[in-house]
Amino acid sequence: MSIAKTIKRLSRPHCWQPGTLGLLLLLAFANVHAQSIEYNGNEIKIALSEDVQAAIDSGVSLTFENELVHSNQWAFFHWHSHETIHSFVVTRHTLSNRYLLHQDGQVAPRIFSSTRETMAYIAETATGQFSNYHQKWSTDEASKQTQNSHKMRLRLSKTKLPGPMRLTAFITSAWDLNSGWKSWQSDQ
């Protein structure tokens, strides 16, 4: 909340200085690794910040992306292949006071009475998706012959936020919902 206040204060013209711009740029880089989606064993727990909760209640669509990658290594170099992204778009239906979840572009949404249920469903689904892909890649003959790992990352896509909100989302940690890369070895 303090960051939101800071932004509000900085929005005032008389407070805006070029030095503040530099400070904010530093903050943007400083908050890259903040995480509000955490792994608990093989489960994922998503905790929305107040700012994000307020945004979704104000009708802002949130897009979560579950990235599943096949990570390769040669010497000291790592690269990803077989990248698959599943998207979860969460919106609030004001007339019914429900939260709608559109998964991978499906027309019919899933309906939830709260964001907690919605996030739980997303976490469960993402974990299930990774298990499915992990099982699929583990049985792949070509993959078996290499020392590879499978990774997943669930994060809120800031670039798919409404335009005016992107810059704020980039430089404030409240919007930094990112699980980070979670790896499982091939034999797992």
Binding site: A4, I7, K8, L10, S11, A54, A55, S58, G59, V60, P162, G163, P164, M165, R166, L167, T168, A169
Partner: peptide, 9 residues
């Protein structure tokens, strides 16, 4: 909701 962030941007 986006008025503040819009001004900021």
């Amino acid at each position: 909701f986006a008025r503040g962030p819009l001004k900021f941007s």
